[in-house]
């Protein structure tokens, strides 16, 4: 194992989150395809996203999308701004901080129904299965 620093970890997380988002995209194609079989099949199908375990997986998806998006901007800045490489480490910590800041409120809305609360959308709160 090579003991790389923040740059290596940023790349490794970028790869893992990228693969995670790709994996979700495949699931998403399947769940959207259900719409072709009529509204009942689709509604029943997407109820799986209300399951507690799937909500936890959704947290991983949110974290992955946020990190991958923010780090993608970091890489763009390094690529196009001639001085960008000097700040790659600081930008990595900014990426992590931004991802966490975005994750906390989004995670709240995803996880709250597990505890019987549906902030912001009481009428659409699917019962916890």
């Amino acid at each position: 194992m090579y003991r790389g620093q923040s740059g290596m970890w940023s790349w490794l997380f970028h790869r893992i989150t990228g693969l995670g988002v790709l994996f979700f995209l495949l699931i998403h194609i399947v769940d959207i395809t259900l719409a072709g079989f009529g509204p009942t099949v689709y509604d029943d199908g997407i109820k799986i996203f209300s399951l507690g375990i799937v909500r936890v997986l959704s947290l991983a998806l949110i974290a992955s999308v946020l990190y991958h998006a923010c780090n993608g901007l970091r890489i763009l800045i390094i690529d196009f701004w001639p001085a960008g490489h000097k700040y790659q480490r600081q930008m990595f910590f900014a990426v992590v901080a931004l991802s966490i800041a975005g994750f906390i409120p989004m995670a709240f809305f995803v996880v709250a129904p597990i505890f019987g609360r549906c902030p912001g959308a009481p009428n659409t709160c699917a019962p916890f299965i």
């Binding site: 090579y2 790389g4 620093q5 923040s6 740059g7 290596m8 940023s10 790349w11 890489i75 390094i78 690529d79 490489h85 790659q88």
Partner: peptide, 16 residues
């Protein structure tokens, strides 16, 4: 842009 090279360079070259 992993920057391992820059960190490893014994001559301090900004490789990346």
């Amino acid at each position: 842009t992993i920057f391992n090279c820059t960190e490893a360079c014994p001559r301090g070259i900004h490789v990346t």
